[in-house]
Design a binder for these strands. Structure first.
Lengths: 207, 207, 207, 207
DNA sequence: CATGAATGAGGCTTCATTCAT
DNA sequence: GATGAATGAAGCCTCATTCAT
């Protein structure tokens, strides 16, 4: 499944006028807020339209179903996360250094987009295929970068996919533990431990 | 929060007779199956009672709400997972070896309880407090064992909590990638990579 | 409809043993309490049997339906009220004096049986026929005594039935205003006013 | 408690369009009919919406719960009764005459609104606070008019509140006896008796 | 006599979606 | 493009009553 497959979701009607565009954005933002706070299933369309300040019928001018708006949000998020991390990593020559830089960027992103983080996690129970696509696409990209680093000799040669999922899982749970649960960056000692753990785990030093 | 706090959930009516006990178990098992298949929110109580083969009113003899039975399932699962892993790890003297042994036990457990895995993940969106309790209790226990290994010199001295969450996250995502998505154990090369990654990441060897 | 018609209510199984009699009484008393507190419709059979401390099946050994126990309570009450008032009035020669004596007795009775009072009022919405029987029987008796007083010249000659309902209504509302709503006897000035009002209203003095 | 307190009941959604207003009224009228016939507790919301000819969901556009619509009906009724009686009494100079005029107006109103009468009586078991408010507000108004009559010397000086409740109770029971139970006005002899009783009871003539 | 389990009809309410204006 | 009304399927839950032990 290509990374772009979900960009055009089932014939969504994009707004054609200026006014429509505004309404569309209002709805998306309202959805982000309320899905993030209450979760997909606990959120009703009324919650969204009230927050957006539009009438119920208006919702269906822009989105086919409740699931539709959720999917669009997730795809939007996905692009943002990737862009953020790639921008942070860009120009960092050494892969190991990039790893830790990306980790910090990711956690900062989380702190600013706590709602979106929740969306992705809940995606597993809303649209499992999209959920898989999300992480596969993420992991594939990650694995590719790891492979390149192996080629360059920055890190040991190992199974890049297994590493990618391991590192994603690690980050997700660290992101959950501090940014999400405590609404603050992971403490220094934790970051040092993780960086050290990853550095050694990936490094080329002989035993 | 003590690990036992959730054992007795808000005045649940336990059956008083043999017959009642059987019905209670039938309901729990049916719930496990159907929650695992369809997810909490897509499951109706009718789904559960039909699978259990009892009348709707019977459900409410033993559970207060849909959430109630869900919570009871999770608590039950929690004890099972922990018991399984601890039994597997028991007797393995070296912590590093225990780590990989436990990893394999965990993944095997997953394969046999795919539904339960999904339950726990969805718990985040059903009862966030219980969800936190679940992982905190898990991580605390994990961190304690890591600390002991540090004392013994089996692994490096690092922040045990950060490590615990890292390792849990790693395992959860590996468990998702192969046992869950592909319904098979992780391939050998992946396991080797992970074991190697963890071994180096935790190990005491100097660089 | 004779006043006694409701004594034997639809084949109720009266207890045959000592032990059964105790259970029967426990249920009746529990029902009186809980019906009085929560009303007929807001009361469930479970409320009753829990208060009585018996099992659910036990209820149906003694009462056919929920309505059944309610009716039996009301009939029981009816006899008590009548007995109380008649005993109070007994021996009071003059009807006018009896009127005020009975009024006081009635209000005192109310204070001691607030629950029962509520039962009777709610009866209108549970079993309208029994409700009518209740007040008709009450009013007929009342009217008969008023007629006798008219014969004796204690009070003016008027339509006894209209008077009976008027006086009952008056008492019911006064009983509601103070004993029921404020849980205390009507204040002296109110009682004097009522006594005066009735005395003049019924009296033989020429204008 | 002010008489107006119950006018705006807990955020009820009032219709915004002509069409909505019609539906709202249809529901209110249907509720009045069916509550009156079957009583509050024996009436289901399905009964109401079927009689109104709308779908079940429509009910909840305008009313929060069954109790909500019941309360709104009662408040509506309250205003109607008061308006009717006051209009009837208006212009009748002498209080004693007004009393009997009001009595007849009240009974005629009852005959045309038998359902509403039942509503109010059942209110005691649906919402006791509103019930008290209903009669207190009624009685206070009544008592005020009686006080004025005392000032003018139309009637004797007595406790106006006790009188008000007495007269209300009297009317309620007379209204029950003939208009309600027999669906006809009280017979002439009964009316004459009551008028005579009240006239003497309130009058200023010395004994 | 007593118990506790089991039943299932029926009630209330929500809510995604469609319709009419 | 926007609004608010309307729909009705579907869910949750209660509870009087019956059954099995």
């Amino acid at each position: 499944m290509s990374e772009m497959d979900f960009n055009e979701l089932e014939g969504v009607t994009r707004p054609k006028t200026q006014r429509g565009e505004v309404t569309f954005q209002k709805l998306l933002e309202a959805a982000e807020a309320v899905f993030g706070e209450k979760g997909y299933y606990e959120t009703s369309i009324v919650d969204i339209i009230q927050r957006a300040g539009v009438a119920q019928g208006t919702f269906y001018l822009y989105f086919k179903t409740k699931k539709d708006i959720f999917r669009q949000l997730v795809v939007h998020l996905h692009h943002e996360v990737r862009k953020t991390i790639q921008e942070a990593v860009q120009g960092v020559a050494n892969r190991l250094a990039a790893e830790t830089t990306g980790l910090r960027a990711y956690h900062n992103f989380l702190l600013e987009h706590r709602n979106l983080y929740r969306l992705v996690r809940e995606l597993e129970f809303v649209d499992e295929d999209l959920f898989k696509w999300y992480y596969q696409s993420f992991a594939n990209n990650y694995a590719r970068r790891l492979s390149q680093a192996m080629e360059k000799g920055d890190i040991r040669k190992m199974d890049p996919e297994a590493l990618a999922y391991s590192l994603i899982g690690l980050n997700v749970f660290i992101g959950m533990r501090w940014p999400l649960w405590e609404n603050r960056p992971a403490p220094t000692i934790a970051v040092e431990t993780i960086v050290d753990f990853i550095t050694r785990g990936l490094g080329t030093e002989t035993k």
